[in-house]
Nucleic acid binder design. Structure first.
Lengths: 238, 238
DNA sequence: GCGCACTACGTACGGTGTACGTAACTACGA
DNA sequence: TCGTAGTTACGTACACCGTACGTAGTGCGC
């Protein structure tokens, strides 16, 4: 044999079962579920090959029969989470349908806070990603644009959702895992920013902070962002 | 002493020099520059506390005098990169100015491909982040909206830029570091997707792939995305 | 029924972040 | 002026990581 090349193939391209040898003790779904369970309860950093193997009840290196590299384990996780998208029959109002998609994605990411970090290397072509894409395209059937444009819309929407949820998650993370209270933290941040801003180098930032906005409503911010984004594709509205 | 609490303070809040003890051998700028140099030439994964210390020429644990946690090293890196933003006197056309900002950010991320990954936990409040924000707000002076809205615009723009550049980087990464040619890779992807799509489960995906679009022009895609986003804030255009 | 491809898994290697202890040094309070 | 407290510097050590490799056992395809 001429030295089989390293095979960084996408995991979805290799069959789950070849038919030769003993029948595998676990399915990809089992493995993904175990990893997701760990990530949900102990955080993404707790997901190690050893830990997942232990969760499954097998030796560490046995995992490598199913998952050539850790990165592929991550792909399984993302796909498993993507499987939780519930798809519906589009109703003919593409704006409403895409808003619903976005809200669902956001909810999904809040349920699995590790998702945005793992999705950053692009929404791949896993089975559930394909289903999701197909569903989005179905929602966009009423939009009179070529598929290229529709795919761009989907990409932008996913990007915005990911961005916003990442920020939301970072915020709660910070307020949750701090050794002091949220008021103390806020006070510190204000004090620090105040000190910075008081130098006079950032007059507009100062004005922005002075602008009495009341407590920010993250939901409303998210909704506005979605609306403005869709406006950019909605020629009937301009 | 009542057990000093762990101090997950933002690194920018602690002074670089207290005045007590021997004078430090390096500045934060030195450290950030060393880490950035490593990340640029050897990739982000090569940035370890040991490697950075070696680059500086000091013992590993000495680094911890400057940087309490590795995460703070990352903050230094992001701030250092942010310092490369060249700021100009806004010209009165906020659309043009914001487009220029976006293009500059994109160029910055291409120069430092590790940036998007490190920026995902939100654009913080490092000195250069504040300068950048202030500059964006200055560009938006002609836009008759409250600061809250302007900050939302900036957030969305950064989100979209990050999303797009991340995709671009993932694409070149894949095409660069593969053991086989790009044609081979493309052929494999087409074959895999073709097989998937041929099941008939994804008719719209099939149509999308069939749609003859020629080679996709990433620049143009980026430009269109920016335009559509800004449209959502440009009430004079509707 | 032979052989081969597959499963299972223990060991080991080189790496990681960082807690902790020690020694030298300097600016401040007395 | 002098102690002393707070810093810097850094070696050692620990727990953990991903995974290369070797070996043993298993069951399907020929």
């Amino acid at each position: 044999m001429a030295g089989r090349a390293a095979e960084p193939e996408v995991i979805w391209a290799r069959p789950e079962r070849t038919g030769r040898g003993p029948r595998p003790a676990y399915t990809r779904a089992d493995i993904a579920a175990a990893a997701v369970r760990i990530a949900d309860t102990e955080g993404l950093d707790a997901v190690s090959m050893r830990r997942v193997a232990a969760e499954l009840g097998c030796g560490t290196m046995s995992l490598y029969n199913y998952v050539p590299r850790k990165e592929d384990l991550y792909e399984l996780m993302v796909d498993a989470a993507g499987g939780e998208h519930e798809l519906w029959e589009p109703g003919g109002d593409w704006r409403a349908d895409m808003l619903r998609v976005a809200h669902q994605t956001r909810a999904l990411m809040h349920r699995h806070p590790w998702l945005p970090r793992l999705m950053s290397p692009v929404y791949g072509f896993s089975p559930n990603a394909l289903r999701y894409l197909e569903h989005c395209l179905a929602c966009l059937d009423p939009l009179p644009e070529p598929y290229g444009t529709k795919l761009e819309l989907i990409a932008m929407l996913n990007g915005i959702v990911t961005t916003y949820v990442t920020n939301e998650l970072a915020t709660d993370e910070r307020t949750r895992s701090l050794p002091w209270s949220q008021e103390r933290e806020n006070a510190m941040r204000i004090a620090y920013l105040g000190g910075r801003v008081a130098t006079g180098e950032y007059p507009r930032m100062a004005a922005a902070f002075a602008e009495d906005a009341g407590p920010i409503d993250l939901e409303a911010v998210f909704e506005r962002a979605l609306g403005r984004l869709l406006d950019g594709f909605d020629h009937s509205r301009r």
